[in-house]
Design a protein around this nucleic acid. Structure first.
Length: 507
RNA sequence: GGGCGUGUAGCUCAGUUGGCAGAGCAGUUGACUCUUAAUCAAUUGGUCGGAGGUUCGAGUCCUCCUACGCCCA
């Protein structure tokens, strides 16, 4: 158990004193009748004389976040979800017991204040307390008032403290929620149906990525956390749900970085009778909608660069983008050997099983992707790296697919869906061969998905958009951890008594 | 997996050439009924991330481990 330090002990002692006075340190049932922002909005601009006449008695509630004590009076600020306001308590305005209770309160405690508003000599709108209710004891001291909490590890591990101390953090997560609402509204207005598909899947699919594995005891079977909802959503299109979308978590058992969290949120949507070209237009429309609704502008400052989202966005083929760098020999586009040679020049690690298309895509990822700051559609992905995409009619080695890059990162991936069950089965077989050759990211054979296609999927296009990355762009956040409330961290040594961990270790 | 950096009081941080572990804020005690980083006086608080080593002596030097950050794979 953790050592109880003197600061916590001091607060426990105060709690005991409150109890001795007959005060419940954790009461329930108190209801504020005005929020802080409401009070500020309604009375903030009022002249002092009007304020005196108009301001009635209100019940406020909030957490004490600062205090300036005098002998028989005190100024302090309280904070609720909507804002912060100053309060003033005077011994002769509340009774002796009330003031004694206040003296036992600390920064961090929750308090209910009955009072009316006035303006101090310095002009700040302030609640003059006529009564107070103790609403909840905080046993741990909050970080310092001036520097606040800056230690990133503590900010992520104890997000609750981060949220108390850093208003900007809360704003990011409010924006995140609003962005998701905008997306939902945009799609619902276009007659898309929101659905939920399995996160625990017997066969993981829909993306080339390493999955997490778990075990269902009652069924006696392995299950995987999904790496994408794709194959289930497309089964629904086969079933006649011609426009579907899902916004939820996917899981990838890969490294953690500034742009990767093991669980992340993705929007995937599928639209029958549409092509990947239609989706480029739709994507521009969607981003315009999100940006105008939440930021009121199509121009965004991100980490010192200015990103202009005004459509149309350039569409460049992957090979052309690679050519345009001028850093890859033309021969690399025509033979695997020369592509491999080019990759070696840039110290890109290759595997013997990597085909020509894979090598060129790796070159693109290395040389082009980080440079694509303005919204850019890259089209013409090799079939080899696109096992679920429809082949291009002119060139079957390429697919009807695009990825969207913004701020040097992949934001979206979309394609006209492969709805030829025979071609799909062959693609799966190629993936299985890669898996057998040791590629842990390769797709599994999914017979049921092939069977679904055999019933006939209408011509369809689908897209996945990384929500976390979109929120990063719109909130000017450098790390994905800044837009995920509880990002993954290594667990701190829990000691030998952690039975839950021991029990699951063998699985 | 590799490289660089960081870890000292509840929080934010100093700590010199290896020589008594510090400051501000918070806390405690006292004064104070218009302050807002309130003020004034006094004062408590430490597994210097962990283990080992070098040394008369280690927060400081060395090795290993650990967590976090950044870069690379």
């Amino acid at each position: 158990m953790e050592n109880v330090n003197s600061l916590i002990q001091e607060r426990i002692n105060k709690t005991e004193k409150l109890k001795a006075m007959g005060v419940n340190p954790y009461p329930s049932g108190y209801r504020p009748d005005i929020s802080i922002s409401e009070a500020l909005d309604r009375f903030g601009d009022m002249e002092e004389e009007t304020l005196e006449k108009e301001s009635g008695l209100y019940n406020f509630a909030g957490r004490i976040i600062s205090r300036r004590d005098f002998g028989k009076a005190s100024f302090f600020h309280i904070k609720d979800r909507t804002g912060r306001i100053q309060a003033y308590i005077r011994k002769n305005k509340v009774d002796d017991v009330g003031f004694k209770i206040f003296k036992l309160m600390d920064i961090g405690d929750h308090i209910g204040i009955k009072g009316r508003l006035f303006r101090t000599r310095t002009g700040e709108l302030t609640v003059l307390a006529e009564g107070l209710v103790f609403l909840g004891k905080s046993l741990r001291p909050l970080p310092e008032k001036w520097h606040g909490l800056t230690d990133v590890e503590t900010r992520y591990r104890q997000r609750y403290v981060d949220l108390i101390m850093n208003d900007h953090v809360k704003e990011v997560f409010v924006l995140r929620s609003k962005i998701i609402q905008s997306i939902r509204k945009f799609l619902v207005d276009k007659d898309f149906l929101e659905v939920e598909t399995p996160m625990m899947q017997p066969i993981p699919g829909g993306a080339t990525a390493r999955p997490f594995k778990t075990f269902h005891n009652a069924l006696g079977m392995d299950l995987y956390l999904r790496v994408a909802p794709e194959l289930y959503l497309k089964r629904l299109v086969v079933g006649g749900l011609e426009r579907v979308f899902e916004i939820n978590r996917s899981f990838r058992n890969e490294g953690i970085s500034i742009k990767h969290n093991p669980e992340f949120t993705m929007l995937e949507f599928y639209m029958a009778y549409a092509t990947y070209e239609d989706l480029m237009v739709l994507t521009e429309e969607l981003f315009t909608h999100i940006l105008m609704e939440n930021l009121g502008s199509l121009v965004v400052e991100y980490q010192g660069m200015t990103i202009d989202f005004k459509p149309p966005w350039p569409r460049i083929s992957l090979f052309d983008a690679l050519r345009d760098t001028g850093r890859v020999d033309e021969k690399a586009f025509h033979s695997r050997e020369d592509a491999a040679k080019a990759a070696m020049e840039f110290q890109i690690s290759l595997l013997p099983r990597d085909g020509h298309g894979t090598i060129l895509t790796k070159l693109f990822d290395h040389l082009v992707e980080p440079q694509l700051n303005m919204p850019t559609f890259i089209i013409g992905y090799p079939t080899e790296v696109s096992p679920l995409s429809r082949r291009n009619d002119q060139n079957p080695d390429l697919t009807d697919r695009f990825e969207l890059f913004i701020g040097g990162r992949e934001i979206a991936n979309a394609f006209t869906e492969l709805n030829d069950p025979i071609d799909q089965k062959e693609r799966f077989q190629n993936q299985v061969a890669l898996r057998e050759a040791g590629d842990q990211e390769a797709l599994f054979m999914d017979q049921d998905y092939v069977r679904a296609l055999e019933y006939g999927m209408p011509p369809t296009a689908g897209e996945g958009i990384g929500i976390d990355r979109v929120v990063m762009l719109l909130s000017d956040s450098p790390s994905i951890r800044d837009v995920i409330l509880f990002p993954h961290m290594r667990s701190i040594e829990t000691g030998s008594g952690d039975e839950t961990f021991e029990e699951n270790k063998d699985k």
